Amino acid sequence: MAFIIEVVRRLDQVAAQHHIMMTYEACCHYELPWVQTADELLRIYNESGAKNLKLVLDSFHMNIAETDMLEPIRKIGNLLDSYHISDSGRGEIGTGHINFVAQYKTLQEVGFKGYVFLEIVIPECRPYKLPMNDRQITEFIRQNQYSKKMWEAISS
């Protein structure tokens, strides 16, 4: 963690020179061995002193790495740059157990104004493989369109 904090500190200096805002996302242990929770993101932010750093949370990763899926949103608060959405099995909204209504309300509670990204992964294409045929592409598009429609319904 000390190495990551020092790297972020150094990158922040370069980012400042080039007017770049950096982001750092917490990812579960299935993808990365470090920085899996909101607390770890906040540690990096605070200890690096980075002024050009915003933080990213992801519903799928929080479902695995956090014991409470709303508290990380509250902890990150105005440092939250973007929010990534997929259900607990990485599929479309409604295919798992994540409470997106509660997440939306908590995002509103902290005054979130950033981007929301859909990160839907169909079963045959676990996250490092793109859809490879027309059927997979059609299903990928369908799940994304459905999730977009559901998120818009929650947020209206």
Rank of each mutant, 00 (worst) to 15 (best):
T37E: 06
D134V: 07
A102R: 12
L70Q: 07
A50R: 01
D81S: 15
E47M: 08
H97Q: 10
S86V: 07
D12S: 12
V56H: 02
I4Q: 13
A153N: 14
K54P: 06
R74W: 02
N99I: 06
F60A: 08
M21F: 10
R74V: 04
D81C: 12
Y45E: 05
I4E: 12
N133H: 11
P131G: 03
K129V: 11
L11Q: 10
I76A: 04
M150W: 08
R126I: 11
E152H: 09
V121H: 07
V110D: 08
A16D: 13
Q103W: 00
L11T: 04
D81N: 14
G114T: 01
L55Q: 03
A102P: 05
F112T: 00
Y115I: 11
S88K: 08
Q143F: 10
V8E: 01
G96F: 03
F112Y: 02
K129S: 11
I120H: 03
S156R: 14
E6D: 15
A38E: 03
D12P: 10
I85Q: 04
D87G: 06
T23F: 00
K113N: 15
D87M: 06
M62E: 06
E71N: 09
E71R: 12
E71I: 11
C125L: 06
A16L: 09
A2N: 13
I98K: 00
D68Q: 07
M22V: 02
K129I: 09
A26K: 02
D39P: 05
V116M: 08
F117S: 15
H61A: 06
E92K: 15
K149N: 12
S147D: 09
I93D: 03
S88F: 07
K54I: 01
E71D: 12
C28M: 03
F112K: 01
H19M: 07
Y104L: 08
G89F: 07
I5N: 10
M150Y: 10
E124F: 01
G91D: 04
I4F: 05
L41T: 04
L80Q: 01
Q136K: 09
V8Y: 00
